[in-house]
Design a binder for these strands. Structure first.
Lengths: 344, 344
DNA sequence: GAATCTTATTAACACGTGTTAGCAACGCGG
DNA sequence: CCGCGTTGCTAACACGTGTTAATAAGATTC
């Protein structure tokens, strides 16, 4: 590993002071440097292959120019995580556009101690995006109280901490409206998760809102709870098929859960969409390869990452913030599982 | 944002020098500190909620305790990346086990300038794991020449740069052997990518080796080239089906490509595995949900991430390195697309 | 010709830590 | 009383940079 070259060595080679080197290389405005010395400095820097030491720069500026992305996830969950790569792309773009870097950290789901707070406390980063926040995370609340730069990916109900999230209510509304527009009047729903999860409750609320605005009655005998897994979807749908006057369409608030529901329908000898229409949520990569291809609501994964990082950096730089509570819109991806004509 | 507390303030509160604070908090061996002052310092530190500033520490130790993970990937590719989350889990574990942190950076596929080298040059990190290295990357070769700490995820043929990779030859051998063990003698192959890619050439080599050891002749009329996509798999398989004496089994060196191949087979009115057996490579999440579920070779994504980070950190810390060229083994996942009885 | 302004450059400080070399106090053998 | 080892602690340096205040030389003004 070749010795690093410091600004002092560049200064010596160019025959000027280290201060001048700094002024030239940083293009400090207001500092009068003659064109001749400017060139000498630039050449010397190039010749010595000089790169300023970010650590020393952090020391004096007080900024690390780094943000953390803390992901609460078990290794098991990782296998089924279809969106992380896109989220990371979004973050990476936003981050490098501002000259920042991204520190990535995974913490176990059960962690409550706020291990990740070391990132801020020891000043490895200027702020963090926290994915999967827990409402019982005392460290988190205290840190936000003290003005730490934190943006949530997801929400904690009741807490006014800046966040970026999907507009789940709206997404569910769009999906349900689609089913209604296809003349369905008995529309079932299977949630993506227990209602303790904000996203789950919101998607249920969106479903109800769509029924309301169409003048359809909400019938809770048509609603079942999923819990992330295919299995839960299978059971829920199996159950829905046994009631008399079974629904002619179902909105399943998670593609993974919908996968199970689809199997239950087909195992019962029924056809999708002829006998039952089904609409999912998330648009996982697999959705378009299902048989039939699944109509679903697209999760704006890239946008989530981008918006979260951008908001956080605005906070760090004290830039103007229009709205610290960002809800991203969704889009319906029409395929053939609802019987609608495919849109190009 | 509350003012940070420095070691000096802790020292003042405890009534000792800053040096003593440093000795106590770092448990410096050989330094005699009386139990009484030790306690005073610890209490003061706790009371003031002191956390040492990593930047200042970096300054004096010369180590950043960070490694970079540079991923060469376009946003389009991200959607089809099924392994990144697992790779990151592996890295994250290895990294935090050694008290390091991970800096994540994405660069566009066409980048040749070595933008990512800024991570090392400006000393943001102590070393990097580079995914998707290009053999025409001049910056990379020069940096390695100069002794930079770099580990490749993947290989550059002919260059002796430390790397971690899947044992593609072995994986392909295992897959082909499986087909042979099911009494197939005319076994076709569709590669995952053009042969310029090491992984692709190696998987082809493994396929040939398995044929060899079974005494089966290599017949290049049974081999087609894929290029990552489903479409390429569809075309390749469609083509294979037209030759006389079509193969009774096919090894497709990528699950995604196999997806297309499967469609081609089924569109031709043939049954899998009755008419043609098919074995994939990668074990993407979707594989087990295909119809029929796809027998395939599991890519050790978690292990790749772990091993790469671990090797890099060993290099950084000058620890003993048994072998800087790591090839990870694979495992066959038997499902029903080859007609073998499923293993539990 | 003295006073003032402009131009080009630099000396010196600050950031917060790890660490080496050294200092004062004390006990103990002679 | 002197010399010496031990114990407990600290002063001072180093790390590489950004930035403020100051300096010297030359140009301009009155």
């Amino acid at each position: 590993m070749g010795k690093r070259t410091s600004a002092a060595e560049v200064a010596e080679l160019a025959g000027v002071s280290r201060t001048t080197v700094s002024f030239v290389l940083n293009n400090v405005p207001g500092m009068r440097i003659s064109e001749e010395t400017r060139q000498r400095v630039l050449q010397a820097a190039q010749l010595l292959n000089y790169h300023p030491d970010s650590t020393a720069r952090r020391m004096v500026t007080g900024q690390t120019k780094m943000i953390g992305f803390v992901l609460r996830q078990s290794p098991d969950q990782a296998f089924g995580d279809h969106f992380l790569p896109q989220v990371l792309h979004g973050m990476s773009h936003a981050v490098s556009a501002q000259g920042f870097h991204l520190v990535f950290e995974i913490i176990p789901p059960e962690d409550q101690g706020g291990v990740y707070m070391k990132l801020i406390n020891e000043r490895h980063v200027d702020g963090i995006v926290l994915s999967g926040p827990r409402s019982d995370d005392a460290e988190l609340l205290r840190a936000c109280e003290q003005g730490a730069n934190i943006v949530l990916a997801g929400q904690i109900p009741g807490q006014k901490i800046p966040y970026v999230d999907v507009n789940n209510i709206d997404g569910a509304k769009i999906a349900t409206r689609h089913l209604i527009s296809l003349s369905h009047t008995r529309i079932g729903m299977i949630t993506n998760a227990p209602l303790a999860y904000t996203a789950s409750a919101d998607r249920l609320a969106g479903y109800r809102a769509a029924l309301d605005e169409a003048g359809l009655a909400y019938d809770e005998t048509l609603v079942r709870l999923g819990d992330f897994t295919m299995d839960s979807g299978y059971k829920a749908m199996d159950d829905l098929l046994t009631i008399d006057q079974r629904p002619s369409a179902v909105f399943v608030a998670s593609d993974t859960v919908a996968l199970g529901a689809l199997q239950a329908i087909q195992n019962a000898g029924l056809q999708v969409p002829q006998d039952i229409a089904i609409c999912g949520f998330d648009d996982i990569p697999l959705a378009k390869f299902l048989n039939p291809p699944l109509t679903t609501v697209q999760l704006p994964a890239y946008g989530l990452g981008w918006a979260a990082a951008d908001l956080l950096i605005r906070m760090i730089l004290n830039k103007e913030i229009i709205n610290p509570y960002v809800l991203l819109g969704t889009e319906l991806v029409v395929r053939s599982s609802c019987g609608a004509p495919e849109r190009p």
